[in-house]
Design a protein around this nucleic acid. Structure first.
Lengths: 349, 349
DNA sequence: TTGTACGCGTTATCAA
DNA sequence: TTGATAACGCGTACAA
C-alpha cells in the first residue's frame, strides 16, 4: 500500500536514517546520495506519513478553522472568501486546514480542546466573535493557541484580526458630509455582533465632529422582519434624513424599497451607503456605494498571524486591524437642495 | 502539557493497556475499573493523541474536501452550504474534515495524493466535476477512495453524488407547457460544466415530447459579458419565446432586464424560470420561479457515501442522484393570449 | 558521511 | 479481568 522510508532505504541500500535526512534536506548527506534517494522516493511515489511525523516532532502542521454556519448571514460571501484566504495562507506554508463548522447556536468550544490536545491541529482561528464572547477567555485559560476573527469590546490581550469598522463608518459618513448631508441615519444589526459597536462608534464620531448627531436617526437591533417598517417610519418622519448608512445589505434594500414607496428616488432624494460589498448590492438598481472589507485578505492574515505566533510565541498578542474601503457607486449624491437643514448645520466644503 | 494514557495509568495504578481498553469501551474490562478510568480521564482532561492512534490503526478518521474557489461562481451560496452539509455528516460520525481549497485553474490533484498516502485523510470528496474531467480516472487509477460531487458524461464506474439536472429541467419545462407555453428558450452556461449536459438533455426531452423543440431558441456557453446581448436578441426575434429557462441567476436577470427594455413585463408577457435558488433570485422583483437544489443535503450525502464506502469497500461504486424541486414564485404565468403559436403546437391541458 | 538505537502515544497479541 | 511486549513510521542523539 503506502511506501515508507524503509522501502526507499531497502531500494537504495542505505539506512532509514539517511533517507530521512536526505528527504529533509539535511546538510550532512552526500549530494549524490541525496539525489539518488530523492529520485527513488519520487519513483516509488513516496509521501511521508503525517501521523508518524506529528507523533515524533509533536507538531500537527495543521490549523483549525471554526466557521459559524446555520447563521442567518450564511449566504453572505464573507465566509467563503475568508475560508479561501486562510486556505491560501495555509497552502503557502505547507500546513493543512481543518474545518470545524459549528452550526449550533451554543458556542461550544469543546471540540477545540479535542483538536488541539489531540494534536490534530497546532492552533485555531475562531470566527464570529461577539461583543462579549466567552470563548475568548475560555481559549486563553485553556492555553490553546488561537487567533480571533473579530474582537470583543474592551479586551485586548489576545490575537485577533479584524476590520476597522469604526474607520469604515467614519469614512462613509465623512463622504456624505462632504456631499452636504447632515441628517444621516444609521441602521444597525444586533448589538451582540462584534462589529456593531465599532461601526456605530465611527458613525458617532464623524457626526459629533460637525455637531450633527441626532439619536432619533439611530437604530440598532434590526432584523429582516423589522427592517421594512423601520425604514418606512424613518423616511416619513417630519425632518427626514437625506442619507442612510446601513449595516447590512438587506437593511439598505429595505430602505430603498421604502424610498420608492414614498416616491423618493435614490440618490436624488436620498443617499444610501451599505456595509459589505455583496453581489446583491452591486447588482441593485442603482448599484450601491459600499464599505467593502477584504474578506479574503482577512482570512489570509488570520492564518499568517496564527502561524507566526505558533513559531514565535514570545511575541505575545498581536492584532491586525484592516481598513475597509469606500467604493463609490450610484446610490450617493449631493444633499437635495430643497431639504431644510436643521439649526446646527455645520459649514462644509 | 498534554495528558497521555500513561498519566491515567499511573493515576489509577493500572497498565496503559487496561486504560486503552477501558476508554475504547472493550468488553473485557471490569465495569468498576472502566468507570474509575473514565472518571480520571475526565478529571485529567484527557484527549487521545490522534497522530498516535492514526499511526497504530492506520486510519486517519478524517475526510478531505476539495472545493473550487476563485471560480466565477464562488459567490454562489452552493459551496458554503455544501461544506456545511459535509461538515455535519463528518461531525455526526466523529471524523474530521480537511479542506483543500484549490484556486488555481489547473486541476492538480497532486495534493490528494499527499493527503491520502500521508494518512491525513481516509478519502476525499472532489467537487466541480466537469463533463470530461481527467481527475476521475486519475483518482481511480491512484486507488484513492473518493466521491465526486457532480459527474462526467458517459462514465459511471465511480462514486458520485449529483443533482438530477435533467429531471429538474424537465419538470420546469413541463410546468411551462402546462401553462400553455410552447416557445421556450434555454440559456445555458459553458458546456464544460458537468450540469450543462444534463439540464439541456432534460429541456430537450420535455420539448420533444410535444414536438416543440426549436434549436434557434437554445443557447449555451453564455457568460456575464455575452448574456445581455443574447437576451436582447432572443426577445426581439420575429417569433419570440414566451418563456425562458435560464441556467444561472445572472442569465435570468439579463433576460428580465432585456424584457424591461423591450417593454415586456414578467410574467405577463414572458415567463422566466431559473436554476439555483440563490438569494438574488428570491429578492428579484418579481421573485423568480426557481429550480432549487438542496446543496446542504448534497454535502451530507457526499460525506455519508464516502464514509460508507470506506467502511464497506466491497459495495463498489454507488450513486446518489438527488431531485431538485421547482419553487413556483411570481415570474411564471400563462402564455400570453395574443402570441401566435407556431404550426406544430401540441394540444396541452 | 552513514548507521544504530531509541522513543513519540496508541492499540493488538498473547500470556497470566 | 489484567499486564507485558511489540509495533505503527518517522526523526534524532550518538557512535562509527
Amino acid at each position: 500500500m503506502g511506501t515508507t522510508a524503509r522501502d526507499i532505504a531497502r531500494h537504495v541500500g542505505l539506512s532509514v536514517t539517511t533517507v530521512s535526512r536526505a528527504l529533509n534536506d539535511h546538510s550532512d548527506v552526500a549530494p549524490a546520495t541525496k539525489a539518488k534517494i530523492r529520485a527513488v522516493a519520487n519513483q516509488l511515489n513516496y509521501h511521508p506519513n503525517a501521523a508518524a511525523r506529528t507523533l515524533k516532532i509533536n507538531r500537527a502542521n495543521a490549523l483549525g478553522l471554526d466557521i459559524p454556519l446555520g447563521l442567518h448571514r450564511s449566504y453572505d460571501t464573507i465566509w467563503l472568501e475568508f475560508i479561501g484566504g486562510m486556505a491560501a495562507s495555509c497552502a503557502r506554508h505547507g500546513v493543512d486546514l481543518l474545518l470545524s463548522a459549528t452550526d449550533d447556536t451554543e458556542r461550544t468550544p469543546a471540540s477545540f480542546e479535542r483538536l488541539v490536545r489531540g494534536r490534530r491541529v497546532d492552533g485555531v482561528v475562531v470566527c464570529d466573535i461577539r461583543s462579549d464572547d466567552s470563548r475568548v477567555n475560555w481559549l486563553l485559560e485553556s492555553d490553546i493557541p488561537f487567533v480571533a476573527f473579530g474582537r470583543t469590546v474592551g479586551q485586548d490581550d489576545y490575537c485577533y484580526v479584524d476590520v476597522d469598522g469604526a474607520a469604515g463608518a467614519q469614512e462613509a459618513v465623512q463622504y456624505l458630509i462632504r456631499l452636504g448631508h447632515t441628517r444621516i441615519a444609521y441602521l444597525g444589526l444586533d448589538a451582540t455582533f462584534g462589529f456593531s459597536h465599532f461601526r456605530r462608534a465611527g458613525y458617532h464620531e464623524a457626526l459629533h465632529s460637525i455637531r450633527a448627531h441626532d439619536p432619533e436617526l439611530e437604530f440598532e437591533g434590526l432584523t429582516e422582519e423589522t427592517a421594512p417598517a423601520v425604514a418606512r417610519s424613518v423616511l416619513s418622519c417630519p425632518n427626514r434624513p437625506t442619507a442612510v448608512l446601513a449595516s447590512a445589505d438587506f437593511l439598505a434594500l429595505a430602505v430603498i424599497r421604502a424610498a420608492r414607496e414614498a416616491g423618493l428616488s435614490v440618490p436624488t432624494d436620498l443617499s444610501v451607503i451599505v456595509f459589505d460589498d455583496n453581489p446583491s448590492v452591486q447588482r441593485e438598481d442603482p448599484p450601491l456605494t459600499a464599505v467593502s472589507q477584504p474578506n479574503r485578505r482577512l482570512g489570509e492574515e488570520a492564518g499568517e498571524l496564527l502561524l507566526d505566533r505558533l513559531n514565535r510565541p514570545e511575541q505575545g498578542p498581536g492584532h491586525r486591524l484592516i481598513a475597509p474601503s469606500l467604493i463609490i457607486r450610484s446610490s450617493t449624491g449631493p444633499r437635495p437642495r430643497n431639504m431644510e437643514s436643521e439649526g446646527t448645520t455645520a459649514t462644509v466644503a
